[in-house]
């Protein structure tokens, strides 16, 4: 596979820390390696997306996110460089594949989105209802730019959310219970659609949570959703699946949403993240 030079440059711009450049890998290479090693209709279902990955619009979103991360912003006019995403203040590389995790300073298990909001409000001084914090969906939101940048710095690294803290374990286990929890007018649970390999809903091939090599792609968000022409987050996907399930709207940043993500990230443990991804 020959990669266009322009896209390689785009990705190189995202890779800034030389020391880790060898570990953080281009998402198209990570996906290709998974496809080479596993037979999976889910991984290969969109040939077009696989071809377009080197030109993924989300790569530019990541670049914009990096600028935003380093920019002095908010009432306190400081950057996010002192934000602790779990691996120490300012450490971005490899942080995302180790989320959600327990944070001493809040006493809570937090996902990327809730941690970012915490940093933007406490460090930069943004009010919780400032658009910079409140607007969560779409390529143009600060939240999607920042999330895409931070996540892209974990591409190719194995998912490895810590489960040492009792609260991390409790949240993961509750997330599993939520995943299997049938309710509503269609009796759906996430497990209805995501516990078999190769099943389809209409023409969409469904990823299986019990097949980590498929599930890593399933949870690799942010991703550019071709159908929406927007970069989307994990929370956006959760919202969409609850909507399909005819169940109430999931609230991002709630412990229910974080528990679900603790379980789904644990289910991909050891498999490399594909970030940013492209999805249908």
């Amino acid at each position: 596979m020959v990669k266009p030079i322009a896209s390689a440059a785009a990705f190189a711009a995202v890779l800034s820390t030389a020391a880790l450049a060898s570990e953080v890998r281009a998402p198209e290479d990570v996906l290709q390696e998974l496809i080479d090693n596993h037979e999976s209709a889910y991984l290969t279902q969109s040939e077009q997306n696989i071809m377009m990955m080197p030109d993924n619009a989300a790569l530019w979103t990541a670049d914009e996110g990096k600028e935003l991360f380093l920019e002095k912003r908010g009432p306190n006019n400081v950057s996010l460089e002192t934000c602790d995403l779990g691996k120490g203040p300012g450490v971005v590389d490899g942080a995302y594949v180790e989320l959600p995790r327990f944070f001493e300073d809040t006493g809570r298990v937090m996902d990327l989105e809730s941690r970012l909001i915490y940093c933007m409000t406490t460090i930069q001084g943004f009010a919780p209802d400032d658009p910079a914090v409140k607007s969560r969906h779409g390529t143009d939101s600060d939240m999607m730019k920042l999330q895409t940048y931070i996540a892209s710095r974990s591409s190719g690294l194995p998912w490895n959310p810590p489960l040492d803290h009792p609260l991390e374990q409790a949240m993961r286990d509750a997330g599993e219970a939520l995943f299997y929890r049938r309710a509503g007018t269609s009796d759906f649970s996430c497990a209805t659609c995501h516990t078999n390999t190769g099943n389809r809903i209409r023409a969409s091939v469904l990823p299986n949570i019990n097949a980590p090599h498929e599930w890593t792609k399933a949870i690799s968000w942010p991703a550019y959703r071709v159908g929406h022409q927007q970069v989307r987050s994990s929370n956006h996907r959760v919202r969409g699946c609850y909507w399909q399930m005819r169940q109430p709207q999931s609230i991002p940043g709630s412990d229910a949403a974080i528990a679900l993500m603790s379980y789904w990230t644990d289910a991909a443990r050891g498999q490399p993240a594909i970030l940013p991804d492209m999805k249908r």
Partner: peptide
């Protein structure tokens, strides 16, 4: 885990109920 899941659904603002 089941108790916590129920708590997160009904009591901890997990959904727009």
């Amino acid at each position: 885990p089941e108790e916590l899941a129920e708590y997160l659904v009904f009591e901890a603002g997990g959904f727009d109920l």
